[in-house]
Structure formats: C-alpha cells, structure tokens
Simulated scan of single mutants.
Amino acid sequence: MLRSLQARTAAAFRSKHAEIFELQAIIPQAAARLSIPRCDIINLHWVSIFLTPESIAQIARTHAPVVWTLHDMVPFTGGCHYDNGCGRFEGACGKCPQLVLPRPNDLSRRNFERKRRAYATIPADRLNIVTPSIWMAEQCRRSPLLGARRIDVIPNSIDLKTFSPQPREQARRRLGLPSQRPILLFVSSKLSNERKGGQLVAQIVERVRADLPDALLVTVGAGMPAATVEHRSLGSFSDDLDMAAAYAAADVTILPSLQDNLPNTMLESMACGTPVAGFDTGGLPDFVLPGQTGVLAPAGGGALALGEVILQMLKSDYAGMGQKARRLVERECAFNVQAQRYKALFAEIVDRDRSR
C-alpha cells in the first residue's frame, strides 16, 4: 500500500529527471508494530518506505543493537536516494533540486528533520552503519544525521560460481554475437538512466569507433541509451547464466555512472574476467584499479575522456586485466569473506552491548 502511495504521489513532487524520492513526510509519524523475535543483533538493509525513522529508532532502543547496511544515500538525505552531487544533506536539505517546487521548508527539509528527531533518540552504541563502498562511508561521515555513528566498510558478495570466466567464443555463440568484433557492454535496468550514464553511452562508443570502427555496443536492460548508436540489444535477462555469458562475451564493460555505491554490474563483470571502464567516482575506484583490473577517467572529463581511455585499453595487451579482476573479487567478494566480516562486527557489537 505504501509503495502504491509513493508511486501515485511521486509525480507531483519530483522533477522530470529525478529518480525515486522518499515521501516519508506524508506517512503517519508512528512506529510500526513489528513482531521481532528475541535476538542479539538486527541487520537492516534497504528499508525505505517499509520502515519509518520512528520504527528504526524504536527497534534500536528496545529490541537489539542495529547494524544498518546502506545501499544508497537515502538514510541520511531528505529523500533522494542519490543527491547527484548537490551536497545539501550536509546541512539540513531544503531547496531540493530534485523536487518540482524547491523551497526552504520543502519535502526534503521535512523528511530530514523527521529523521533527525528519530535518530537523536537512539543511543550512540545502538546504531551502527555498514557501507559497501569507501565512497558511501565518506558521504555518510559528512552527514549530520549519521556521521557520528560507527561506520564500517564491508563490500557486497556475489555468486562466484555463476559469475565466472568462460571462453569468449562460447559466450558469444550462446548469445548470437559476432565472434571477431570488439564488444563494449553496457548494463542497466533502465538504459536511459542519467545517473547511470545512459546519456553518455553513444558518445563513448562513437569515440572508440572513430579509431576502432568494428567496435560494437551490446546492451542489457530495458529501453535504449538516450542517444542512438549502432548497437545490439539483448533485452533484459531473468537468468543469471545468460547475464554471465554477456559479461564473458564482452571485451570491456562500461559503467559511466555519475554516482553509484558499489555496482553489482562491476563486480559481476570482474568475476567473469571482463575488465571494467568507468569514471573515478562512487565505489568504482574500490575495485577498478587503472591498468590492472580496468580503466578510469576523471569524473568531470565527460564521455570523450572515458571513450579515450577505453580506446587505449583496447589497443593495448589487456588480457591480463580480466585475470586480475577475477582474483580481486575472489579475495574480496566471496560469500564466506563477507560473512566472516559481518560475523566479526556482530560479535564485537554484541559483546559491547552485553557489557553495557
């Protein structure tokens, strides 16, 4: 019901190009009555709309210490899941550029103040933050809402058996892709998404094709990139094995995101032995090590700069990049690695809570 309410109401508040925006200010300010069994610790993940700030505060105060894993910025903003670099969450939001009518006391300010009041009731050691990327941890530390809390970085894990290297020719035959052309893969649930760089893809590919005219853009996702360029659409996949084949079939996966936490597309591509190219922003620099596991362009350099570094990579002997990429995700993103890191964190927090 709340998701339906958000969907119906969002259009009245959001600007044309904004992504999902949290409408907590129009939801009754009461803690949800949750049936939580007796436990030592609670790990929250993406709970937007499902839990109000008051509910989160009540859980932390009365049930058990909370570890909150942040998958986007909304826990410490006035409603945006990514702020597109505006930085207004460092104050108290308001005048939100993602709203149709930004005002000092707009929806973002009211959301922000509601979170401030709720979080202030949680004892310092009862709310702990985990972020998958160093970048998200840095953003969180700048927040007056959560910056004073304990913040740990634990990367996400992925299925390293499903997403694993396979012969490129085999993967291309499976998907009906040409065997000889250099393939640039772009993956997004919505290919025109501006935060994901959908509006830049055509320019990136055109820069590569200026020197490598056989280069082919292959896309996985709904819709089309914002500008047209010769490409092969594979549509949307429901089978992870097909997705793994798409990564393995590519020479490089391009992630032109302007802001992102720790994209699964990056980790999955690297697990399949395919290097990644993107901007040095968000969580990409955590795993895309220039010249080793992929290439990065300056965040403000634009499409041509990213196209240029991709071109230089494709002209070089880049075969070893995929192998190094695979080894890195094996070391950092295996299920048991993530589990052990959370286990150690949980044990420390539980011991501290019991002694208190």
Rank of each mutant, 00 (worst) to 15 (best):
K161I: 08
L296N: 08
A271M: 03
N43I: 11
M136P: 10
E206I: 04
P144R: 14
L101M: 14
A250F: 00
I183S: 00
F335Y: 11
A319M: 01
G78T: 07
N111W: 10
I254M: 14
D260W: 07
F279M: 11
I27T: 05
S157T: 08
S164V: 06
R331S: 09
P37F: 11
L212Y: 00
A250P: 00
Q170T: 14
R141L: 12
K343R: 14
F21N: 11
T274I: 03
F13N: 03
G283K: 09
E22L: 03
V276M: 09
S355M: 04
I59E: 06
I42N: 06
L262T: 05
I134F: 03
A32T: 06
E22I: 00
G283V: 13
Q58D: 14
A347G: 08
P144E: 13
P132H: 08
R114I: 00
W68Y: 10
I349M: 04
S179T: 07
A11I: 01
K324Y: 01
N43V: 15
M224Y: 06
D351S: 11
C140A: 13
N336T: 15
A325F: 02
L146I: 05
M313D: 06
K115L: 05
P182E: 01
Q312L: 15
F163H: 07
K196F: 08
F50S: 11
C80I: 07
Q98D: 13
I254S: 00
E138D: 15
Q203N: 07
V205G: 00
C140S: 07
N43W: 02
T265Q: 05
V229S: 07
G221T: 12
I20E: 09
R142A: 12
R354P: 05
I154S: 06
I129F: 04
F163D: 04
G278E: 08
P104M: 08
L146C: 04
A11S: 14
H63W: 04
A32N: 06
I151E: 10
Q29N: 01
A25E: 06
D211A: 10
R356Q: 15
K315D: 08
L101Q: 13
P144I: 14
V288C: 11
G176K: 08
A124Q: 14
S4D: 10
R149T: 12
L306N: 08
A60E: 07
I49L: 12
T265M: 02
A226H: 10
